[in-house]
Design a protein around this nucleic acid. Sequence first.
DNA 1: AACTGATAATTCATCGATCATCAGTTGATT
DNA 2: AATCAACTGATGATCGATGAATTATCAGTT
Lengths: 230, 230
Amino acid sequence: MTDAAFDLGSDDIPALSTGEQAYERIRHDIVFGVLQPGQRLPLDRLKSVYGVGISTLREILNRLAPQGLVVAEGQRGFQVSPCSVTDLKELADLRLLIESNALAQSFQAGDVEWEGRIVAAHHKLARMEQRLLAGDESGTQAWKRYDFEFHQALVSACGSKALLDLHAGIYDRYLRYQMVFFVFWGPTSTEDHKALLDCALRRDAAEAQRLLHGHIHGCIDMALERGLVD
Amino acid sequence: MTDAAFDLGSDDIPALSTGEQAYERIRHDIVFGVLQPGQRLPLDRLKSVYGVGISTLREILNRLAPQGLVVAEGQRGFQVSPCSVTDLKELADLRLLIESNALAQSFQAGDVEWEGRIVAAHHKLARMEQRLLAGDESGTQAWKRYDFEFHQALVSACGSKALLDLHAGIYDRYLRYQMVFFVFWGPTSTEDHKALLDCALRRDAAEAQRLLHGHIHGCIDMALERGLVD
DNA sequence: AACTGATAATTCATCGATCATCAGTTGATT
DNA sequence: AATCAACTGATGATCGATGAATTATCAGTT
């Protein structure tokens, strides 16, 4: 989620290496559905598309594999991880488990700095949701990012780097389903986010977990009903 | 944990590729402390030690990085992930969170096949612990593996591949601390395992979670007391 | 017409070579 | 004597070439 492509003239930042750039692009293209689930990834084609050498490509794909975004079937190359209802449900449960726990710890340990972060993140998210409700469809991708940043901010005071890393990884995989299959789902989501913010400021972890449960399951239930996922 | 080096003459199995072999060896050497925490990993040296080319090596290290066993400090190569008390505690908490949850689901869904697996796994583990208590120190490594296999078996019926993968990954990182800093810690562990098995057969998830909590925290508390970890 | 076997073409895995980057050292200048 | 700059040796990052495996094609046979 680190959109580190904002090197606006800052000379001291050492400019992402070739491989790092390509890594971000490929990951982005998988998460955002440009490279579709199940699609094979012939090295020669990627080589010309992303403009890096074979070895660098293989490094990138090998980094993506343990994260669950690509699968490597030994001796037969790589392909984008396929999507399935089962996988989506498992990911949703996993995200709920991780995020609920992190939420509780974060609520307990959060200081004023943390409150500042979540208020700011919610503000940006709410603004974007206003625009979407007003019919401006252009910001869907940005909305997803602000959504992540808000949830990220909520758990950011949990005190465990390992837990945060894990959460980010799971969220990324979950995000792919959102990007590929879901759309913005209206006022329900907005209300959930507002309620979550209030819980956080009240430090009401139990209620927040209940909300999160509804938030996540509501989201995937709707998608399943609509038949958006095979 | 897949000690797949048992290709005893089975001709149809396509024999692990060069890279795969080296991957297993390097991961093994990190988990078992041959490559020590914080140690730098110069490519030329590894190249001669493990007998693979630069590119293959980099693929391997890039696979290990997202798993948390090596860290890549951009433009300055790789090193074995350093160890710290903080990290150990975070991992222990994480393992507890994941495994507790998986345990509960597994207890609910487990069938007779599953019961067979856990009984078998416990039997092997108990046998090994007998030998260790009798003073035979030779099997410490094997004990760690049986310990993993037992815990693995307990959660194996949880029904979520994503959850199982996650558990295996966390356990691997946790295992490194065990291998590097811990030793076999006597009858307490044996009793815990027996009690866990009984809980499983009774499907008493609550008690099992309580036991697991004590099992894990007892283990790291002892290590911290003894000052085994810096 | 369908099946099997060999052969051709595509794709992958592995490697060492080359170019870029970093750290330690030396030397010149103030 | 101290500081900064350029040099140099070492290490890492990237690349395309090469051999191996897999898949597709196509005869030849039943």
